[in-house]
Amino acid sequence: MSSYIPFSLFDSFQRDIGRHLASRPTVQSERPPAAPPVDVVENDEAYLLTMDVPGVANDAIEVTVHDGVLEVRGERSIQTSEKYRSALQERWQGKFLRRFQLPETVDEEQIAARVEQGVLALHIPKRAQQTPRRITVQ
């Protein structure tokens, strides 16, 4: 038989309300981050990195790889007519930078990039796996 503790219901209610208020998005958290979101998938031959870059011109994206680090830089600028003044601006703009440490198995020379419908796709092939070679002892 459990005992009735009147304040335990209040504590439970207060925790539930606190969780609810903490999970409510604020105006700031609803805005997309300045760093575009990324997905990475792989198969036996390659990795595929996709990044949302809507409204970013192809020539405003720079992809480099150096010492095993893949770097994606870009800038999104939104042009508005001078006939209007801003009343609300939720779309992000400005420079972004994402860096990724590549595994040693990547063939850096064969990385390819393309943008299609606002999504940057980076095909990152893996090097062919070297199998151990058995050496006959004479």
Rank of each mutant, 00 (worst) to 15 (best):
S3D: 05
S3V: 01
Y4N: 11
P6L: 05
F7K: 10
L9N: 15
F10T: 13
D11R: 12
Q14N: 13
Q14Y: 14
D16Q: 12
D16N: 12
G18E: 14
R19Q: 11
H20S: 08
S23W: 02
S23K: 09
S23T: 08
S23N: 14
P25D: 06
T26R: 02
T26P: 02
V27P: 06
V27K: 12
Q28D: 14
S29C: 00
S29P: 02
S29F: 03
E30G: 07
E30M: 15
E30I: 09
E30K: 11
R31D: 03
P33G: 12
A34M: 11
P36A: 05
P37V: 03
N43S: 08
D44F: 01
D44L: 13
E45V: 05
A46Y: 02
A46T: 05
Y47H: 01
L48V: 13
L48I: 12
L49V: 12
M51F: 06
V53Q: 07
V53C: 02
V53P: 05
P54F: 01
V56T: 14
D59S: 10
A60C: 05
I61P: 00
V63E: 06
V65Y: 05
H66I: 05
V69K: 12
L70C: 07
V72K: 03
R76N: 07
T80L: 11
E82Y: 04
E82D: 15
S86Y: 01
A87L: 15
L88K: 14
L88T: 11
Q89V: 10
Q93R: 10
Q93I: 01
K95T: 11
F96W: 06
R98L: 10
R99M: 01
F100L: 11
F100W: 08
Q101L: 07
L102N: 01
P103N: 10
P103A: 09
E104W: 00
E104K: 12
T105N: 11
E109N: 13
E109V: 04
E109Y: 07
Q110A: 15
Q110F: 00
V115N: 00
V115L: 02
E116F: 00
G118I: 00
L120C: 01
A121T: 13
A121H: 00
A121M: 04
L122R: 08
L122Y: 07
L122D: 02
I124E: 04
I124A: 02
I124R: 04
P125S: 02
K126E: 00
Q129E: 14
Q129R: 12
Q129N: 11
Q130W: 00
R133K: 15
R134H: 13
V137D: 13
Q138G: 14
Q138R: 15
